[in-house]
Amino acid sequence: MPLWQWLLDAVGVLLVLILLYGVALVVRRRLLSRHGGTFELSYRVRSGRAGRGWLLGLGRYSGESLEWFRIFSLSPRPKRSWARSVMTFDSRRDPEGPEQGSLYPDHVVVECGTPAGPVELAMSPSSLTGFQAWLEAGPPRPAQEI
């Protein structure tokens, strides 16, 4: 078999694999959102450099926790999860500089507190309203000592 036929076969196999990956991503997103409560949610994994370290993903409310799934992963399990009982809303801000290109359009950056340290998330303003309502709807927290 000539070399060009091998190359053509290899390109065909590569295109089929890319197509299967795309279909698998769509099916995964549908399965994650079948129970509702999913929204576009970006998570900042590294905050060392301004505007860097953002990963696009999906958020899902699951009982008493917020689960985060990477957008281009095929894993059915969340990559991160935060319990409502220990998460606090600290502030919100607009994306600055390079962050604007790293995040979904019109998303705002939300800074939250957790026992493990601060967490930065980015979501749409309507998702932020739902997130704040979800946090406030949790059981009352014990009073903190001063």
Rank of each mutant, 00 (worst) to 15 (best):
M1L: 09
M1Q: 08
W6L: 11
L7A: 13
L8A: 12
L8I: 10
L8P: 07
L8W: 14
A10C: 09
V13F: 05
L14P: 00
L15E: 06
L15I: 14
L17P: 09
L17R: 12
L17V: 14
I18C: 09
L20A: 01
Y21E: 04
G22C: 01
G22E: 02
V23R: 04
L25Y: 05
V26N: 05
V26Y: 03
R28Q: 12
R29C: 06
R30T: 15
L32D: 03
L32K: 03
S33V: 05
R34Y: 04
H35W: 09
H35R: 11
H35V: 09
G36H: 06
G36Q: 07
T38D: 06
F39P: 00
E40G: 13
E40F: 02
L41T: 00
S42I: 09
S42F: 13
Y43L: 15
R44T: 08
V45M: 03
R46I: 12
R49M: 14
R49V: 15
A50G: 06
A50T: 11
R52F: 14
G53T: 02
G53A: 07
W54L: 00
W54E: 00
L55G: 00
L56V: 02
G57Q: 11
L58P: 00
S62F: 04
E64N: 12
S65I: 10
E67L: 14
E67Y: 07
W68S: 05
W68I: 10
F69I: 05
R70D: 01
R70K: 12
R70S: 03
I71V: 15
I71M: 13
F72P: 00
S73W: 02
S73F: 00
S75W: 14
P76L: 09
R77E: 09
R77S: 13
P78Q: 06
P78G: 07
K79A: 10
R80A: 04
R80K: 10
A83H: 15
S85R: 06
V86S: 15
V86E: 07
T88S: 10
S91I: 04
R92M: 12
R93I: 01
R93S: 14
D94C: 06
D94T: 13
P95N: 04
P95H: 02
P95D: 02
P95Q: 04
E96V: 13
E96L: 15
G97E: 07
G97K: 11
P98T: 13
P98R: 12
Q100P: 01
S102A: 15
S102W: 07
L103P: 05
L103S: 03
L103C: 13
Y104K: 02
P105D: 11
D106N: 13
D106P: 04
H107E: 01
V108E: 04
V108N: 01
V109A: 01
V109I: 13
V110M: 04
E111C: 02
E111G: 02
E111F: 01
C112P: 02
C112V: 03
G113E: 05
